[in-house]
Design a protein around this nucleic acid. Structure first.
Length: 853
RNA sequence: GCCCGAGUGGCGGAAUGGUAGACGCAGGGGAUUCAAAAUCCCCCGGUAGCAAUACCGUGUCGGUUCGAGUCCGACCUCGGGCACCA
């Protein structure tokens, strides 16, 4: 008996697709298009199961839409700039470009055997000069439109390595290589004016109906629109020029509960004070030793320093409050200064208890007069509370109403004004690193900052650089910086900062529509292919990548690189869950974590050990697969042993696509067995050896139509695991069916079509075996006959007091009265009723009956 | 710390407010075989019972409802993000 041999079948059909050019996407104004895009990979060098899951899902959609007659664009590229390439160069020598292009070649070789329906002719890497040159051109256009500017911003500074560190490289406040305490340092950096678009980006979220609600909510919170009061405290004893201290508050209704004011260590007043006061200078210096991340600030112990200055309460000049410098105040949010109301903010309360400050109740629960003790009273703003120290509106009102009333009252009294504030900050894109897109500007002593001329683009990265010293190799390159000023022609210096890699990934989707164009995009192609109809990627990108891309699409529209309709570039978004795996860690001599690949681990009776040395390994369960943690599983082995279809089928089975899935080896075998079984069924059907009985034809045909319907709805709803379950069911039905040979063959041809988006190679093989015309990859999607989906009788479960006790079979459209009669006649119902009448009889037609006694 | 999710058999999971556990894995029993592999059939949440059946059961506690895994409130645990990882 012949057997299914994936290693022979898969390459055969891949060649057939290639020869037929099935996946080549060409603009055709007469056909409706469909653009499927998965988030492109970082070329780490090895594909992992997360990629397999991501690209399989996208491929299911792409192939399904193609079967429905759409002109599908399904491209692939590489998010190729970034730190790992430089780290590799530092650790192993070599050049980031070599490392990156080598990895891309390796990963392409690993990806191709998956049989994805990708138009490889559109492939590019963001580190190609052709790509980043176009990005530079757009940067210049955006600079021209005022979308880009420079300002000072803080970075993590490693004082030993004399280099800027990424947040990831700061571990417990210390540099990852040097171990030296990190300092915050100010540098002049390039920014995109994303915050000018705060309201626009917020409002447009409502229109993104095919995005997950949770992503829209996360973005909404990230943008963080708030309405509050901004006002100035009159200061007492402050240096000249600091007569008032501007603060912003979202809770002006608690103004009479204020007991202190606090400013950020980076506030101009704090900086002014440290000039004459060594204690303040020391405190500020201490604060600046924290990393720059919000997480580091928020989780650090809350500390304050009493400046000795005081501010006057705006309602009562006799009421003075102390001014603190506090390590948890962000200079980037509001005015960098707040007033504290300890009774109604837990952080303020902790602070007040620590420094012995007053705690003044402003409002209390409606039905209680309990004062705040160790827990701040912070009810939802929509809840009604009783104001005991209110100054505007009713005594009993919601926080929302009180805030509005307080703003009105303050404005009337001339104390500040109501303002709208956003949490969203401008997007800092300067990176003091080599392996990124050079920012195409020149610094001239005469002309200042001048954009490079477009005809000189791309500003290419020099190849002759070394990574033997920390810091930016562009800075110490002997000649690269030297350039003639594009404006006056005198000797000038190039900008040595490169762009954040988020810039690269903020427009690649647009470039795919015309990947070889000599402008960033072409209007005809962008008009036809945009928007991305279905975008698929990890939930970890819910905020930054997606928000930056939404901004960038707007900026590209304003600079003439995208049509208006593409300002929201992703029509539908699906966020897949992550593929997780255990992490294996040992510690180095400085107790820093060292991660190990699953393949390097051996399991012994005493636990996990390093295979090479026998060193015990700490196992951290179920964590996101990531390059840096090395907890990656190699799909190449799975594909080699079982074939791509098995890996694809397994990734679609069992776990819902939006949920995390922990990789287990056990399922691969099962998936392979199932695919072999399908193939065997087809082989038998071809030979006509299965037992046949024409009377069973209708049952199988009905099951077939039901399966078409269910699988179609499963794919449409991104419920691939359910579609897979239905395909399992149908396979069992076919296997057990006594239907005649022709009906079986028809059923299996439909099975091939339904499986084709998921296991395309197997599907082609059985399609050909059973006489399907042409390639199943080019066949039209089957359509269920609605008449075949209707059932004549239904099973009606009977509950007694909500518990299932019995069931009856009734015709589908039986009248309610007749159903009630049958229910009361039911043996089990009669038994519990024991002659009495039920209190209530609930009949939900076609679904259920509940007898209440 | 803040924002967003998720918790259902031994495991992955299914279930428009309407029969909890579809489908798959693992496990148990059987058929086939000289034997094995492969394949096929049956069983499979817990407790009690020969059985019919009864009771318990969807992270915890409370609520709404004829009826709650599903809705509401509080909590616990795990995961993602927090602006220089990508």
């Amino acid at each position: 008996m012949s057997r299914y041999d994936a290693s022979a079948v898969e390459p055969k059909w891949q060649s057939a697709w290639d020869e037929a050019g099935v996946f080549r996407a060409e603009r055709d104004e007469n056909r409706p298009k469909y653009y499927v895009l998965e988030m492109f990979p970082y070329p780490s060098g090895r594909i992992h199961m997360g990629h397999v899951r991501n690209y399989t899902m996208g491929d299911v959609i792409a192939r399904y839409k193609a079967a429905q007659g759409f002109n599908v664009l399904h491209p692939m590229g590489w998010d190729a700039f970034g730190m790992p390439a430089e780290n590799a160069a530092m650790e192993q020598g070599g050049h980031p470009a070599e490392w990156t292009y080598g990895n891309i070649a390796d990963m392409r070789d690993q990806l191709k055997p998956m049989g994805l329906s990708i138009d490889w002719s559109r492939e590019f890497a963001t580190c190609d000069a052709e790509y980043y040159g176009q990005q530079q051109a757009m940067f210049i256009d955006m600079l021209d439109k005022g979308l880009v500017y420079r300002k000072a911003a803080t970075v993590n500074w490693d004082p030993v390595d004399m280099t800027v560190l990424a947040n990831e490289q700061v571990i417990d406040g210390k540099g990852w290589r040097s171990g030296a305490p990190v300092e915050r340092r100010e540098l002049t950096q390039w920014f995109f004016r994303i915050s000018d678009f705060s309201e626009e980006l917020l409002e447009a979220l409502d229109g993104l109906e095919k995005w997950p609600e949770k992503v829209r909510l996360m973005q909404r919170n990230w943008i963080g629109r708030s309405r509050g009061l901004q006002f100035g405290f009159e200061t007492v004893g402050a240096p000249e020029g600091f007569g008032t201290l501007e603060v912003y508050t979202t809770r002006p209704d608690t103004l009479l509960g204020a007991s202190f004011a606090a400013i950020s260590p980076d506030h101009p007043l704090a900086k002014r004070l440290e000039a004459d006061n060594p204690d303040i200078a020391a405190f500020n210096a201490e604060c600046r030793k924290m990393g720059t991340s919000e997480e580091a600030l928020e989780t650090a112990e809350k500390k304050g320093f009493a400046t000795g200055l005081r501010v006057k309460h705006p309602f009562d000049p006799a009421w003075e409050m102390p001014v603190y410098i506090a390590n948890f105040i962000l200079m980037d949010y509001g005015t960098g200064a707040i007033f504290g109301c300890p009774a109604h903010d837990q952080r303020d309360l902790d602070f007040a208890r620590k420094y012995g400050l007053d705690v003044i109740d402003v409002f209390q629960p409606v039905d209680s007069d309990e004062s705040v003790d160790d827990t701040a009273f912070v009810p939802p703003k929509t809840e009604k509370v009783r104001y005991v120290k209110g100054f505007a509106g009713d005594a009993v009102q919601t926080g929302e109403d009180a805030v509005e009333a307080a703003i009105d009252q303050c404005e009337a009294r001339g104390v500040g004004k109501g303002v709208v504030n956003y949490r969203l900050r401008d997007w800092g894109i300067s990176r003091q690193r080599y392996w990124g897109c050079p920012i195409p500007v020149v610094h001239c002593e005469t002309c200042g900052v001048v954009p490079e001329k477009k005809e000189n683009l791309p500003v290419e990265l020099p190849r002759d650089v070394s990574f033997d010293k920390p810091g930016n190799p562009l800075d110490r390159h002997p000649t690269w910086r030297d350039v003639a000023c594009p404006s006056c022609g005198k000797p000038a210096r190039r900008e040595t900062d490169t762009m954040d890699t988020f810039v690269d990934s903020s427009w690649y989707f647009a470039r795919f529509t015309a990947p070889r164009a000599e402008t960033p995009t072409t209007m005809a192609d962008a008009e036809y292919w945009m928007n991305v109809d279905q975008y698929i990627g990890g939930i970890e990108h819910a905020i930054l990548h997606l928000l930056y891309s939404r901004f960038f699409a707007r900026a590209m529209h304003l600079t003439g690189h995208l049509p208006k309709k593409a300002t929201e570039p992703f029509d539908a978004l699906f966020t897949q869950g992550m593929v997780t795996h255990e992490i294996y860690v040992t510690r180095d001599d400085r107790d820093r974590p060292v991660y190990h690949l699953p393949g390097d681990i051996e399991w012994t009776e005493s636990g996990a050990r390093l295979g090479a040395t026998g060193e015990p390994v700490e196992v951290i369960p179920s964590a996101k697969m990531s390059k840096s943690k090395k907890n990656v599983v190699d799909p190449v082995n799975i594909i080699r042993d079982f074939g791509a279809d098995t890996a694809r089928w397994f990734m679609l089975s069992d776990s819902p696509p939006e949920r995390d899935v922990e990789w287990t080896a056990a399922g691969a075998e099962a998936a392979w067995k199932h695919l072999s079984r399908v193939w065997r069924l087809a082989d038998e059907a071809r030979a006509g050896t299965a037992p046949a009985d024409g009377a069973a034809d209708e049952a199988l045909t009905r099951a077939m139509h039901r399966t078409i319907d269910e699988v179609t709805r499963g794919i449409e709803g991104f419920a691939f695991n359910k579609a897979v379950a239905k395909l399992y069911e149908f396979t069992n039905t076919v296997a057990k069916s006594k239907a005649g040979a022709e009906t079986r063959r028809a059923a299996l041809r439909v099975l091939a079509q339904l499986m084709a988006p998921m296991t395309p190679h197997l599907a082609e093989d059985i399609w050909a075996m059973l006489g399907g015309a042409g390639l199943v990859a080019e066949a039209a999607w089957p359509v269920a006959d609605p008449a075949m989906l209707v059932e004549d009788t239904v099973t009606l479960p009977i509950q007694v007091n909500g518990k299932r006790r019995s069931e009856i079979q009734v015709p589908k459209d039986m009248a309610k009265e007749e159903v009630e009669k049958r229910v009361l006649a039911d043996e089990a119902v009669q038994r519990v009723l024991a002659g009495a009448a039920p209190k209530k009889l609930i009949v939900v037609p076609g679904r259920i009956v509940n007898v209440v006694i």
